[in-house]
Simulated scan of single mutants.
Amino acid sequence: MAGSLAYFNNFLSKQPALSSFGVMVRKEVGDHIRSWRFIVMLLLILFTFAGTMYVSLSNLGQVARNFNDPDHDFIYLKLLTTSDNSLPTFHIFISFLGPLLGIALGFDAINAEKNNGTLVRLLAQPVYRDSLLLAKCYAALLIVGTLFLSLVLLMIGAGLILTGVPMEATELYRILTFVVLSVLYVGFWLSLSICLSVAFRHAATSAITAIGIWLFFTVFYQIIVNMIVRAILPDPASLQAEQVIAYNNLLLSFLRVAPSQLYTDAATTLLMPSVRSLGPLTMEQMAGAIPTPLPFKESLMIVWPQVTGLVAASTVCFAGAYYMFMRREIRT
């Protein structure tokens, strides 16, 4: 940390035209990419990406010949959604590994600086508190966005070389939107971990708390919701068709409190154009429907509530971190 402060002071004195925010972002990016925890997470994501791409490419010919699938023409989307049940698809892996990446990048953003005694020295420079907090969040999101975009470009390049099929514009729009969605999903866990790093003094406490929240929403939340709904509401087997649909919609509404459910719903709709609804439909609603892929704009309208939910949750967590950090008294 002392070396980072020396670099900060030296660089700021040599680059008067560069703002303190830009210097801090550059410093945070350098610290992240040189840290062992980011290298481990990077290797883990690369291995899972390589495994899912190998499985997808191995089964791509069979999927392309399946004319019963309305999405069989979208070759590049199939690279992200095809699996032979030996490995989950890539967006399922991201729903599991994305929170760990966000937590790893933010659980000690503030308390590590304070415990090492560098926070006071850093704020003694011509640096605002909000600039420090924004720089830590922006640098982590910049790394995550670059990582996901690089993986997607590698996937597109490999698909173009192996298949020779040109990419359609709607596939490019959907894949880039999927990248933005993945960054937003990781950004929520990053904001939560930064908020916990401000709230707790020790980095270990903030890391354990963030991992506990992730485990709760990933493992236990669905079990608890199912138990509560079954205890309060009648058995679905005894309900009529309209009541069963209302029952399932209520259950889905509770499950969508979990960020992983919001991300999975949105990613599935974007990568599978034939998905027309994220909830149960009646026979009247399905009457006359043609099983064809939806335009990109209509798929985006379906997932807009999920996207705004992730953005709102991230904003609330970051606002909490901002409020606590701006009101905290920092002493040597």
Rank of each mutant, 00 (worst) to 15 (best):
R129D: 05
G117A: 04
Y138A: 13
F178H: 01
L141I: 02
G157Q: 09
L176R: 07
Y173G: 10
L147S: 04
P166T: 10
G157K: 07
E171G: 09
L141M: 11
V120Q: 02
T177D: 09
L151A: 02
K136A: 01
Y173S: 14
I175G: 01
V120H: 12
V165A: 10
E113N: 09
N111T: 08
L172E: 12
V120G: 09
D130H: 06
R174K: 04
L142K: 15
G164Q: 12
N116T: 15
L132W: 05
E171R: 04
E113A: 14
L122Y: 01
V165R: 15
A112E: 13
V120I: 07
T146I: 10
R121W: 09
I161A: 12
A135C: 15
L133R: 04
G157V: 00
L151S: 12
L160S: 10
M167Y: 03
F178S: 01
L172T: 08
R121C: 15
P126H: 04
L119A: 04
R129Y: 05
I175L: 10
V179K: 02
D130C: 09
T146K: 02
G159L: 01
A169Q: 15
L151G: 06
L149S: 06
V127I: 15
I161M: 11
L149P: 06
L122E: 02
L154Q: 05
A169K: 11
S131K: 03
T170G: 02
M155A: 00
T118C: 06
G145L: 04
R129L: 05
V179S: 03
A169N: 11
T170K: 00
L132M: 12
V144Q: 00
L162N: 15
G159P: 05
E171Y: 01
C137K: 14
I175F: 07
I161F: 10
I156N: 09
T177F: 02
L122S: 02
L176P: 05
L141Q: 06
C137H: 14
F148L: 01
T177M: 11
G145W: 04
R129W: 06
V127G: 04
L149Q: 07
L141Y: 12
T170C: 00
G117E: 11
L142Y: 14
V179T: 11
K136V: 00
R129E: 08
I143G: 14
V165L: 02
L162K: 13
A158D: 14
G117D: 06
D130W: 13
I161D: 12
L132R: 09
Y173R: 12
L119Y: 00
I143W: 08
V144T: 00
P166R: 10
T177C: 11
R174N: 05
G145I: 05
K114Y: 14
N115P: 00
L160K: 10
K136L: 08
E171T: 02
V179Y: 00
L162Q: 15
G145A: 05
A112M: 15
N115M: 02
G164T: 14
L119I: 06
A139Q: 12
L160R: 12
V120W: 02
L153K: 08
G157E: 06
F178E: 00
A158Q: 13
G117T: 10
L160Q: 11
I143A: 07
P126K: 06
